[in-house]
Design a protein around this nucleic acid. Structure first.
Length: 392
RNA sequence: GGGGGGAUACCCGAGCGGUCAAAGGGGACGGGCUGUAAACCCGUUGGCUCAGCCUUCGCAGGUUCGAAUCCUGCUCCCACCA
Protein backbone atom coordinates (compact mmCIF):
# COMPACT_ATOMS: atom_id res chain seq x y z
CA UNK A 1 0.00 0.00 0.00
CA UNK A 2 1.03 3.55 -0.72
CA UNK A 3 2.20 5.74 2.13
CA UNK A 4 -0.47 8.29 2.87
CA UNK A 5 -0.35 11.56 4.75
CA UNK A 6 -1.97 12.08 8.12
CA UNK A 7 -3.63 15.47 8.24
CA UNK A 8 -6.84 16.21 6.33
CA UNK A 9 -5.41 18.85 4.05
CA UNK A 10 -2.57 16.63 2.99
CA UNK A 11 -4.91 13.69 2.53
CA UNK A 12 -7.19 15.76 0.36
CA UNK A 13 -4.25 16.87 -1.71
CA UNK A 14 -3.18 13.26 -2.05
CA UNK A 15 -6.62 12.11 -3.18
CA UNK A 16 -7.01 14.97 -5.60
CA UNK A 17 -3.48 14.87 -6.96
CA UNK A 18 -4.40 13.21 -10.24
CA UNK A 19 -8.05 14.16 -10.38
CA UNK A 20 -9.38 16.56 -12.96
CA UNK A 21 -11.93 18.19 -10.67
CA UNK A 22 -12.40 18.07 -6.94
CA UNK A 23 -15.31 20.36 -6.19
CA UNK A 24 -16.05 22.52 -4.39
CA UNK A 25 -12.65 23.89 -3.62
CA UNK A 26 -11.44 22.93 -0.16
CA UNK A 27 -14.51 20.92 0.74
CA UNK A 28 -12.78 17.56 0.65
CA UNK A 29 -10.24 18.64 3.21
CA UNK A 30 -12.99 20.06 5.42
CA UNK A 31 -15.01 16.92 5.33
CA UNK A 32 -12.02 14.69 5.87
CA UNK A 33 -11.42 16.82 8.93
CA UNK A 34 -14.65 15.58 10.46
CA UNK A 35 -12.78 12.44 11.26
CA UNK A 36 -15.49 9.96 10.27
CA UNK A 37 -15.51 7.52 7.36
CA UNK A 38 -16.93 9.26 4.33
CA UNK A 39 -19.42 7.55 2.07
CA UNK A 40 -17.84 7.46 -1.37
CA UNK A 41 -20.16 6.58 -4.20
CA UNK A 42 -19.59 5.13 -7.62
CA UNK A 43 -22.40 4.16 -9.94
CA UNK A 44 -21.93 1.40 -12.45
CA UNK A 45 -24.07 0.37 -15.34
CA UNK A 46 -24.81 -3.35 -15.47
CA UNK A 47 -25.25 -3.44 -19.24
CA UNK A 48 -21.62 -4.16 -20.06
CA UNK A 49 -20.22 -5.90 -17.02
CA UNK A 50 -16.64 -6.49 -18.07
CA UNK A 51 -14.25 -4.14 -16.38
CA UNK A 52 -11.59 -2.68 -18.58
CA UNK A 53 -8.59 -0.49 -17.96
CA UNK A 54 -10.70 2.63 -18.28
CA UNK A 55 -12.73 1.58 -15.25
CA UNK A 56 -9.64 0.84 -13.25
CA UNK A 57 -8.66 4.49 -13.24
CA UNK A 58 -11.64 5.44 -11.13
CA UNK A 59 -11.62 2.17 -9.21
CA UNK A 60 -8.07 2.87 -8.18
CA UNK A 61 -9.18 6.18 -6.80
CA UNK A 62 -11.89 4.41 -4.83
CA UNK A 63 -9.27 2.06 -3.52
CA UNK A 64 -7.31 5.01 -2.19
CA UNK A 65 -10.37 6.19 -0.27
CA UNK A 66 -10.85 2.67 0.97
CA UNK A 67 -7.28 2.47 2.19
CA UNK A 68 -7.84 5.67 4.14
CA UNK A 69 -10.71 4.00 5.95
CA UNK A 70 -13.66 5.39 4.04
CA UNK A 71 -16.77 3.52 3.02
CA UNK A 72 -17.07 2.77 -0.68
CA UNK A 73 -20.61 2.44 -1.96
CA UNK A 74 -20.98 0.77 -5.34
CA UNK A 75 -24.33 1.31 -6.95
CA UNK A 76 -25.42 -1.21 -9.51
CA UNK A 77 -27.63 0.74 -11.85
CA UNK A 78 -30.16 -1.97 -12.44
CA UNK A 79 -32.81 0.71 -12.89
CA UNK A 80 -30.82 3.44 -14.58
CA UNK A 81 -29.31 0.78 -16.81
CA UNK A 82 -32.65 0.45 -18.45
CA UNK A 83 -32.48 4.04 -19.51
CA UNK A 84 -28.92 4.22 -20.72
CA UNK A 85 -26.68 7.12 -19.98
CA UNK A 86 -27.31 9.57 -22.80
CA UNK A 87 -23.64 10.24 -23.38
CA UNK A 88 -22.97 9.56 -27.02
CA UNK A 89 -25.91 8.87 -29.20
CA UNK A 90 -26.25 5.22 -28.54
CA UNK A 91 -29.55 3.77 -29.49
CA UNK A 92 -32.18 2.71 -27.06
CA UNK A 93 -30.72 0.03 -24.88
CA UNK A 94 -32.16 -3.40 -24.62
CA UNK A 95 -34.05 -3.97 -21.43
CA UNK A 96 -32.14 -6.40 -19.32
CA UNK A 97 -33.84 -9.22 -17.54
CA UNK A 98 -33.42 -9.64 -13.82
CA UNK A 99 -31.16 -12.62 -14.36
CA UNK A 100 -28.92 -10.72 -16.74
CA UNK A 101 -28.58 -7.89 -14.28
CA UNK A 102 -27.77 -10.34 -11.51
CA UNK A 103 -25.17 -12.05 -13.65
CA UNK A 104 -23.64 -8.76 -14.75
CA UNK A 105 -23.56 -7.37 -11.25
CA UNK A 106 -21.83 -10.51 -10.02
CA UNK A 107 -19.31 -10.34 -12.82
CA UNK A 108 -18.64 -6.73 -12.06
CA UNK A 109 -18.19 -7.33 -8.35
CA UNK A 110 -15.82 -10.20 -9.00
CA UNK A 111 -13.74 -8.23 -11.47
CA UNK A 112 -13.73 -5.11 -9.32
CA UNK A 113 -12.06 -7.29 -6.73
CA UNK A 114 -8.93 -7.01 -8.84
CA UNK A 115 -8.71 -3.43 -7.65
CA UNK A 116 -10.99 -2.98 -4.63
CA UNK A 117 -11.26 -4.83 -1.37
CA UNK A 118 -14.75 -6.11 -1.97
CA UNK A 119 -15.19 -7.23 1.64
CA UNK A 120 -15.37 -3.59 2.61
CA UNK A 121 -17.61 -2.38 -0.18
CA UNK A 122 -21.30 -1.65 0.23
CA UNK A 123 -23.08 -2.79 -2.93
CA UNK A 124 -26.55 -1.42 -3.57
CA UNK A 125 -28.97 -1.54 -6.46
CA UNK A 126 -30.82 1.58 -7.37
CA UNK A 127 -34.04 -0.32 -7.95
CA UNK A 128 -34.22 -0.30 -4.16
CA UNK A 129 -35.27 3.32 -4.28
CA UNK A 130 -35.93 4.20 -7.91
CA UNK A 131 -38.86 1.82 -8.18
CA UNK A 132 -40.84 4.65 -6.67
CA UNK A 133 -44.37 5.89 -6.72
CA UNK A 134 -45.33 8.34 -9.43
CA UNK A 135 -45.91 10.94 -6.78
CA UNK A 136 -42.35 10.61 -5.59
CA UNK A 137 -41.13 10.81 -9.16
CA UNK A 138 -43.02 14.10 -9.47
CA UNK A 139 -41.10 15.34 -6.48
CA UNK A 140 -37.83 14.35 -8.08
CA UNK A 141 -38.78 15.83 -11.45
CA UNK A 142 -39.61 19.14 -9.78
CA UNK A 143 -36.04 19.58 -8.61
CA UNK A 144 -34.63 20.40 -11.99
CA UNK A 145 -35.54 22.48 -15.00
CA UNK A 146 -35.26 21.52 -18.62
CA UNK A 147 -32.92 24.45 -19.20
CA UNK A 148 -30.56 23.04 -16.57
CA UNK A 149 -30.55 19.66 -18.24
CA UNK A 150 -29.98 21.11 -21.67
CA UNK A 151 -26.81 22.71 -20.43
CA UNK A 152 -25.21 19.35 -20.46
CA UNK A 153 -22.88 18.97 -23.45
CA UNK A 154 -24.42 15.81 -24.83
CA UNK A 155 -27.86 17.27 -24.75
CA UNK A 156 -26.79 20.67 -26.00
CA UNK A 157 -24.99 19.14 -28.96
CA UNK A 158 -27.83 16.88 -29.83
CA UNK A 159 -30.29 19.70 -29.48
CA UNK A 160 -28.19 21.88 -31.78
CA UNK A 161 -27.84 19.08 -34.30
CA UNK A 162 -31.57 18.43 -34.12
CA UNK A 163 -30.98 14.93 -32.96
CA UNK A 164 -33.49 13.15 -30.83
CA UNK A 165 -33.51 13.44 -27.06
CA UNK A 166 -36.04 11.40 -25.19
CA UNK A 167 -37.67 12.51 -21.99
CA UNK A 168 -36.38 9.35 -20.39
CA UNK A 169 -32.84 10.37 -21.17
CA UNK A 170 -33.45 13.74 -19.58
CA UNK A 171 -34.51 11.88 -16.50
CA UNK A 172 -31.28 9.94 -16.28
CA UNK A 173 -29.25 12.60 -14.50
CA UNK A 174 -32.09 13.04 -12.00
CA UNK A 175 -32.12 9.38 -11.18
CA UNK A 176 -28.39 9.30 -10.75
CA UNK A 177 -28.66 12.32 -8.49
CA UNK A 178 -31.32 10.63 -6.45
CA UNK A 179 -28.97 7.70 -5.92
CA UNK A 180 -26.75 10.11 -4.05
CA UNK A 181 -29.68 11.12 -1.89
CA UNK A 182 -30.57 7.51 -1.19
CA UNK A 183 -27.11 6.49 -0.07
CA UNK A 184 -26.25 9.84 1.51
CA UNK A 185 -23.07 10.19 -0.47
CA UNK A 186 -20.32 12.43 0.82
CA UNK A 187 -18.30 12.05 -2.34
CA UNK A 188 -19.14 10.80 -5.79
CA UNK A 189 -16.52 9.69 -8.25
CA UNK A 190 -16.70 9.46 -11.98
CA UNK A 191 -14.87 10.13 -15.21
CA UNK A 192 -14.83 13.70 -16.47
CA UNK A 193 -17.73 12.78 -18.75
CA UNK A 194 -19.78 12.39 -15.59
CA UNK A 195 -19.14 15.88 -14.30
CA UNK A 196 -22.56 17.20 -15.16
CA UNK A 197 -24.38 14.31 -13.54
CA UNK A 198 -22.23 14.49 -10.44
CA UNK A 199 -22.80 18.21 -10.06
CA UNK A 200 -26.51 17.85 -10.58
CA UNK A 201 -26.46 15.29 -7.80
CA UNK A 202 -25.44 18.12 -5.50
CA UNK A 203 -28.45 20.19 -6.48
CA UNK A 204 -30.75 17.28 -5.93
CA UNK A 205 -29.28 16.48 -2.56
CA UNK A 206 -29.80 20.09 -1.53
CA UNK A 207 -33.42 19.89 -2.66
CA UNK A 208 -33.85 16.89 -0.41
CA UNK A 209 -32.29 18.70 2.50
CA UNK A 210 -28.98 16.90 2.41
CA UNK A 211 -25.44 18.13 2.38
CA UNK A 212 -24.09 18.28 -1.13
CA UNK A 213 -21.62 15.65 -2.14
CA UNK A 214 -18.10 16.38 -3.21
CA UNK A 215 -17.50 15.79 -6.86
CA UNK A 216 -14.27 14.15 -7.88
CA UNK A 217 -13.59 13.35 -11.51
CA UNK A 218 -10.80 11.32 -13.01
CA UNK A 219 -9.43 11.61 -16.54
CA UNK A 220 -10.83 9.44 -19.28
CA UNK A 221 -8.51 6.80 -20.58
CA UNK A 222 -8.39 6.54 -24.35
CA UNK A 223 -8.83 3.15 -25.95
CA UNK A 224 -6.14 1.26 -27.79
CA UNK A 225 -6.89 3.38 -30.83
CA UNK A 226 -5.53 6.26 -28.79
CA UNK A 227 -8.39 8.49 -29.80
CA UNK A 228 -11.78 7.52 -28.50
CA UNK A 229 -12.72 6.83 -24.93
CA UNK A 230 -12.03 3.25 -23.98
CA UNK A 231 -15.25 1.32 -24.16
CA UNK A 232 -16.29 -2.19 -24.77
CA UNK A 233 -18.85 -1.23 -27.37
CA UNK A 234 -16.21 0.54 -29.43
CA UNK A 235 -14.06 -2.55 -29.20
CA UNK A 236 -11.00 -0.55 -28.20
CA UNK A 237 -10.75 -1.83 -24.67
CA UNK A 238 -8.51 -4.11 -22.67
CA UNK A 239 -10.48 -6.13 -20.15
CA UNK A 240 -8.91 -6.86 -16.79
CA UNK A 241 -9.77 -10.54 -17.12
CA UNK A 242 -8.42 -10.97 -20.62
CA UNK A 243 -5.67 -13.54 -21.05
CA UNK A 244 -2.13 -12.28 -20.47
CA UNK A 245 -1.15 -12.46 -24.15
CA UNK A 246 -4.14 -10.31 -25.06
CA UNK A 247 -3.41 -7.67 -22.45
CA UNK A 248 0.21 -7.67 -23.50
CA UNK A 249 -0.40 -7.58 -27.23
CA UNK A 250 -3.15 -5.00 -27.10
CA UNK A 251 -1.01 -2.74 -24.98
CA UNK A 252 1.72 -2.86 -27.59
CA UNK A 253 -0.84 -1.76 -30.09
CA UNK A 254 -1.47 1.64 -28.57
CA UNK A 255 -0.05 4.58 -30.49
CA UNK A 256 3.28 5.84 -29.22
CA UNK A 257 1.89 9.22 -28.30
CA UNK A 258 -0.64 7.63 -25.96
CA UNK A 259 2.17 6.38 -23.74
CA UNK A 260 2.42 9.35 -21.36
CA UNK A 261 -1.31 9.27 -20.58
CA UNK A 262 -1.39 5.53 -20.14
CA UNK A 263 1.56 5.64 -17.80
CA UNK A 264 0.06 8.52 -15.89
CA UNK A 265 -3.41 7.11 -15.49
CA UNK A 266 -2.54 3.47 -15.00
CA UNK A 267 0.82 3.42 -13.29
CA UNK A 268 0.85 6.89 -11.80
CA UNK A 269 4.22 7.65 -13.31
CA UNK A 270 5.84 8.93 -16.46
CA UNK A 271 7.29 6.67 -19.12
CA UNK A 272 10.87 5.81 -18.19
CA UNK A 273 13.06 8.43 -19.78
CA UNK A 274 15.78 5.97 -20.64
CA UNK A 275 13.52 3.74 -22.73
CA UNK A 276 12.39 4.28 -26.29
CA UNK A 277 8.69 3.98 -27.16
CA UNK A 278 8.89 0.29 -27.94
CA UNK A 279 10.55 -0.65 -24.68
CA UNK A 280 8.45 1.75 -22.66
CA UNK A 281 5.40 0.11 -24.17
CA UNK A 282 6.74 -3.31 -23.37
CA UNK A 283 7.41 -2.28 -19.79
CA UNK A 284 3.88 -0.94 -19.52
CA UNK A 285 2.46 -4.13 -20.97
CA UNK A 286 4.41 -6.23 -18.50
CA UNK A 287 3.27 -4.07 -15.61
CA UNK A 288 -0.37 -4.40 -16.61
CA UNK A 289 -0.21 -8.16 -17.01
CA UNK A 290 1.55 -8.38 -13.67
CA UNK A 291 -1.15 -6.31 -12.04
CA UNK A 292 -4.06 -8.37 -13.30
CA UNK A 293 -2.31 -11.73 -13.39
CA UNK A 294 1.21 -12.11 -12.08
CA UNK A 295 4.80 -11.61 -13.03
CA UNK A 296 5.30 -15.07 -14.48
CA UNK A 297 2.35 -14.54 -16.81
CA UNK A 298 3.83 -11.25 -17.89
CA UNK A 299 7.07 -12.88 -18.91
CA UNK A 300 5.24 -15.70 -20.64
CA UNK A 301 3.11 -13.21 -22.53
CA UNK A 302 6.17 -11.32 -23.65
CA UNK A 303 7.86 -14.51 -24.79
CA UNK A 304 4.75 -15.46 -26.71
CA UNK A 305 4.67 -12.07 -28.36
CA UNK A 306 8.31 -12.24 -29.37
CA UNK A 307 7.87 -15.67 -30.80
CA UNK A 308 4.73 -15.00 -32.81
CA UNK A 309 5.03 -11.39 -33.85
CA UNK A 310 8.71 -10.65 -33.89
CA UNK A 311 10.17 -13.98 -34.97
CA UNK A 312 7.00 -14.96 -36.88
CA UNK A 313 7.12 -18.44 -35.49
CA UNK A 314 4.33 -20.74 -34.55
CA UNK A 315 3.35 -20.56 -30.88
CA UNK A 316 3.83 -23.69 -28.81
CA UNK A 317 0.30 -23.92 -27.48
CA UNK A 318 -1.66 -24.28 -30.71
CA UNK A 319 -5.09 -25.80 -30.13
CA UNK A 320 -5.81 -29.02 -31.98
CA UNK A 321 -9.07 -29.16 -33.90
CA UNK A 322 -10.86 -32.18 -35.29
CA UNK A 323 -11.54 -32.00 -38.99
CA UNK A 324 -13.70 -34.57 -40.79
CA UNK A 325 -11.48 -36.61 -43.11
CA UNK A 326 -14.32 -36.95 -45.55
CA UNK A 327 -13.44 -40.38 -46.89
CA UNK A 328 -9.76 -39.74 -47.47
CA UNK A 329 -10.07 -37.83 -50.73
CA UNK A 330 -8.68 -34.33 -51.30
CA UNK A 331 -9.91 -31.75 -48.81
CA UNK A 332 -11.53 -28.50 -49.78
CA UNK A 333 -9.39 -25.97 -47.94
CA UNK A 334 -12.17 -23.39 -47.46
CA UNK A 335 -14.24 -26.08 -45.77
CA UNK A 336 -11.31 -26.89 -43.47
CA UNK A 337 -10.93 -23.21 -42.61
CA UNK A 338 -14.61 -23.06 -41.83
CA UNK A 339 -14.16 -25.88 -39.34
CA UNK A 340 -11.05 -24.40 -37.82
CA UNK A 341 -11.87 -20.72 -37.66
CA UNK A 342 -15.52 -20.35 -38.61
CA UNK A 343 -14.70 -18.56 -41.84
CA UNK A 344 -17.19 -18.43 -44.70
CA UNK A 345 -16.14 -19.95 -47.98
CA UNK A 346 -15.82 -16.55 -49.55
CA UNK A 347 -13.69 -15.20 -46.73
CA UNK A 348 -11.49 -18.26 -46.89
CA UNK A 349 -11.01 -17.94 -50.63
CA UNK A 350 -10.08 -14.32 -50.29
CA UNK A 351 -7.56 -15.02 -47.56
CA UNK A 352 -6.00 -17.83 -49.58
CA UNK A 353 -5.78 -15.60 -52.64
CA UNK A 354 -4.13 -12.89 -50.54
CA UNK A 355 -1.51 -15.23 -49.20
CA UNK A 356 -2.91 -15.05 -45.71
CA UNK A 357 -3.22 -18.79 -45.18
CA UNK A 358 -0.17 -20.82 -44.26
CA UNK A 359 0.45 -24.48 -43.54
CA UNK A 360 3.39 -25.01 -41.21
CA UNK A 361 4.50 -21.49 -42.05
CA UNK A 362 4.33 -21.87 -45.83
CA UNK A 363 1.73 -19.89 -47.79
CA UNK A 364 -0.67 -22.11 -49.64
CA UNK A 365 -2.50 -21.22 -52.83
CA UNK A 366 -4.40 -24.38 -53.70
CA UNK A 367 -8.05 -24.77 -52.82
CA UNK A 368 -7.90 -28.55 -52.67
CA UNK A 369 -5.28 -30.23 -50.56
CA UNK A 370 -4.27 -33.82 -49.97
CA UNK A 371 -5.11 -35.07 -46.48
CA UNK A 372 -1.44 -35.78 -45.75
CA UNK A 373 -0.57 -32.19 -46.55
CA UNK A 374 -2.59 -30.89 -43.59
CA UNK A 375 -3.05 -33.71 -41.10
CA UNK A 376 -1.18 -32.94 -37.91
CA UNK A 377 0.06 -29.64 -39.31
CA UNK A 378 -0.54 -26.11 -38.13
CA UNK A 379 -2.74 -23.94 -40.27
CA UNK A 380 -2.33 -20.22 -39.78
CA UNK A 381 -4.62 -17.44 -40.90
CA UNK A 382 -3.14 -14.00 -40.83
CA UNK A 383 -0.69 -13.33 -38.04
CA UNK A 384 -2.72 -14.32 -35.06
CA UNK A 385 -4.92 -17.32 -35.74
CA UNK A 386 -3.47 -20.80 -35.45
CA UNK A 387 -4.92 -24.30 -35.26
CA UNK A 388 -3.49 -27.77 -35.60
CA UNK A 389 -5.47 -30.08 -37.85
CA UNK A 390 -6.45 -33.49 -36.64
CA UNK A 391 -8.24 -35.53 -39.28
CA UNK A 392 -10.90 -37.78 -37.86
C1' G B 1 -53.69 18.56 -35.39
C1' G B 2 -50.53 20.52 -39.80
C1' G B 3 -47.22 20.55 -43.61
C1' G B 4 -42.01 18.31 -44.23
C1' G B 5 -37.63 14.82 -44.12
C1' G B 6 -36.06 9.88 -43.87
C1' A B 7 -35.36 4.08 -43.76
C1' U B 8 -29.14 1.61 -48.58
C1' A B 9 -24.15 -3.59 -46.93
C1' C B 10 -20.53 -3.92 -39.72
C1' C B 11 -21.23 1.84 -38.97
C1' C B 12 -21.76 6.63 -41.49
C1' G B 13 -23.27 7.79 -46.21
C1' A B 14 -23.75 8.51 -52.04
C1' G B 15 -26.93 6.67 -55.76
C1' C B 16 -32.78 8.48 -57.95
C1' G B 17 -34.91 3.45 -64.56
C1' G B 18 -30.25 -0.22 -67.34
C1' U B 19 -23.07 0.20 -67.49
C1' C B 20 -25.31 -1.60 -59.30
C1' A B 21 -23.18 -6.62 -55.29
C1' A B 22 -24.24 -0.66 -55.26
C1' A B 23 -19.38 5.62 -54.92
C1' G B 24 -16.77 7.67 -50.67
C1' G B 25 -15.24 7.50 -45.54
C1' G B 26 -14.70 4.80 -40.90
C1' G B 27 -13.97 0.10 -38.93
C1' A B 28 -12.35 -4.79 -39.72
C1' C B 29 -9.37 -8.23 -42.27
C1' G B 30 -4.98 -9.75 -45.58
C1' G B 31 -0.15 -8.51 -47.60
C1' G B 32 4.35 -5.39 -47.57
C1' C B 33 7.52 -2.76 -44.43
C1' U B 34 8.98 -2.32 -39.27
C1' G B 35 11.11 -1.41 -33.01
C1' U B 36 5.25 -2.96 -31.96
C1' A B 37 -0.77 -6.26 -33.01
C1' A B 38 2.27 1.49 -33.87
C1' A B 39 2.99 4.65 -38.24
C1' C B 40 3.15 4.22 -43.44
C1' C B 41 2.05 1.78 -48.35
C1' C B 42 -0.91 -1.79 -51.25
C1' G B 43 -5.17 -4.83 -51.35
C1' U B 44 -9.88 -7.12 -49.65
C1' U B 45 -14.60 -6.33 -47.33
C1' G B 46 -23.03 -10.29 -49.27
C1' G B 47 -23.26 -15.72 -50.01
C1' C B 48 -22.12 -20.16 -52.75
C1' U B 49 -20.69 -26.23 -55.54
C1' C B 50 -16.72 -19.19 -57.51
C1' A B 51 -13.99 -16.97 -64.67
C1' G B 52 -20.35 -18.89 -63.15
C1' C B 53 -24.62 -18.77 -60.09
C1' C B 54 -27.84 -17.08 -55.98
C1' U B 55 -29.84 -13.44 -52.45
C1' U B 56 -29.54 -7.98 -50.99
C1' C B 57 -30.93 -1.34 -50.85
C1' G B 58 -37.53 -0.88 -44.24
C1' C B 59 -42.14 -4.47 -45.53
C1' A B 60 -45.95 -6.03 -49.24
C1' G B 61 -47.75 -5.41 -53.94
C1' G B 62 -47.62 -2.94 -58.92
C1' U B 63 -45.62 -0.45 -63.60
C1' U B 64 -41.52 -1.82 -67.04
C1' C B 65 -37.92 -5.86 -71.59
C1' G B 66 -35.36 -4.06 -67.03
C1' A B 67 -36.30 -0.95 -60.36
C1' A B 68 -32.10 0.66 -54.78
C1' U B 69 -34.09 4.17 -58.29
C1' C B 70 -41.19 5.18 -60.68
C1' C B 71 -46.44 4.11 -58.46
C1' U B 72 -49.77 2.21 -54.35
C1' G B 73 -50.47 0.52 -49.46
C1' C B 74 -48.25 -0.65 -44.92
C1' U B 75 -44.49 -0.31 -40.73
C1' C B 76 -40.99 2.41 -38.16
C1' C B 77 -38.04 6.87 -37.24
C1' C B 78 -36.82 12.24 -37.12
C1' A B 79 -36.85 17.44 -36.79
C1' C B 80 -40.22 21.52 -37.44
C1' C B 81 -45.02 24.56 -36.87
C1' A B 82 -49.27 24.53 -33.61
Amino acid sequence: MRRVPENPAAQAAFLARNAVDCLPEGELARRLGEGRPLRVKLGIDPTAPDIHLGHTVVLQKLREFQDLGHQVVLIVGDYTGRVGDPSGRSKTRPVLSGEEIDANADTFARQAGKVLDMDRVEVRRNSEWLDMKMEELFGLARTTTVAQLLERDDFANRWAAREPISVLELLYPLMQGYDSVAVQADVELGGTDQKFNLLLGRDIQREYGQREQIVLTTPILAGIDGVQKMSKSLGNHIGVTEPPEEIYGKTLRIPDDALPTWYGLLLGSEPPADLGPRDAKRALARALVTRFWDEASAHAAEAHFDRVFVAHEIPDDVPEVDVPADGGGPLHLPAVLRTLFGLSTSEARRLIAQGGVKVDGEPIAELDVAPDAVDGRVIQVGKRRFARVKLV
